[in-house]
């Protein structure tokens, strides 16, 4: 990775921290401690399940919201503030700018996720002191898949922000996330159609990100093992899909008239 990309990434990270993005950790801490203390009193036998389900769901949703709302402003904010011209007047290529922004926001989300993961394990230790199980390591797999989701959504937010307004970019990115949770259903529906419609429906189903395959929260909560093959394939898929969206963003941004 070039030094220029790293520099833009570290600046993006600093900017996110300055924008108080990490304040969501406070909300997460309140949520986790509340769940760990309260659920045992109002429900039966699901303390561990709630900590894992709520923790992973909150990490995923908080991260998706951050990825979308920060991601859509990564390019447009720089244009509005006219700082983009300063950056591009230096020996920085447009694709490096996009790649740096992606890495910076991705890094912010990874740090955020690591902090929240510590919160989940702390809550698990609170409800069941000294009893972290071997199967709890699969929580790390779910967290890894959540990070892969963030990479896809960040890349999509960047793609949309490279040609659209922030509001529309947010709508597009969120809509694709929602549709992505139904991607397996979409492919099922495509199978039911015939002829050209089938081709179009299948193509559309494959174009949306497969978010559902990256959601293993239920399996992890029930201590089911996640196959190694799924980890490898999901990693490859998320990287390829993110790369594809980033390429789209670069192609559009390269041709964009910034005058």
């Amino acid at each position: 990775m070039s030094a220029r990309i790293l520099h833009i990434a570290s600046n993006t990270f600093r900017e996110a921290v300055r924008d108080r993005v990490l304040y969501n950790l406070i909300a997460f801490a309140v949520l986790m401690s509340g769940a760990a203390i309260l659920v045992g009193q109002i429900s039966i036998n699901i303390e561990r399940l709630v900590v894992i389900n709520l923790g992973l769901t909150a990490i995923s949703l908080f991260g998706i919201v951050i990825a979308i709302f920060i991601g859509i402003g990564l390019v447009s904010k720089e244009i509005d503030k006219r700082t983009l011209y300063t950056v591009l007047s230096r020996p920085v290529r447009r694709w490096e700018f996009i790649a740096g922004k992606f890495c910076g926001l991705g890094g912010t989300l990874v740090v955020n996720t690591i902090c929240m993961a510590v919160g989940i394990f702390a809550a698990l230790l609170y409800i069941w002191p000294h009893h972290l199980q071997a199967s709890d390591t699969s929580i790390l797999v779910a967290l890894y898949f959540i990070i892969l989701q963030f990479l896809i959504i960040t890349a999509l937010a960047l793609l949309f922000s490279s040609f659209s307004s922030p509001l529309l970019s947010a709508i597009f990115a969120f809509a694709l996330f929602v549709i992505g949770t139904f991607s397996e259903d979409l492919r099922g529906f495509a199978q039911m159609t015939h002829g050209a419609e089938r081709w179009l429906a299948t193509a559309a189903a494959y174009m949306v990100p497969n978010i559902s395959a990256l959601n293993v929260i239920a399996q992890v909560a029930h201590e089911q093992q996640i196959p190694g093959q799924l980890i490898v394939l999901n990693t490859a898929y998320a990287l390829v899909y993110s790369f594809m969206a980033l390429l789209g963003a670069v192609l559009i941004f390269e041709r964009r008239n910034l005058k």
């Binding site: 659920v39 109002i42 429900s43 039966i44 699901i46 399940l49 709630v50 389900n53 709520l54 769901t57 995923s60 949703l61 929602v178 949770t181 978010i211 559902s212 959601n215 929260i217 239920a218 909560a221």
Partner: peptide, 14 residues
């Protein structure tokens, strides 16, 4: 529930 059905199940169980 957008794929977060296990958390919804916990809520409904409660």
């Amino acid at each position: 529930s957008l794929g977060y059905n296990s958390l919804m199940a916990d809520i409904y169980w409660t």
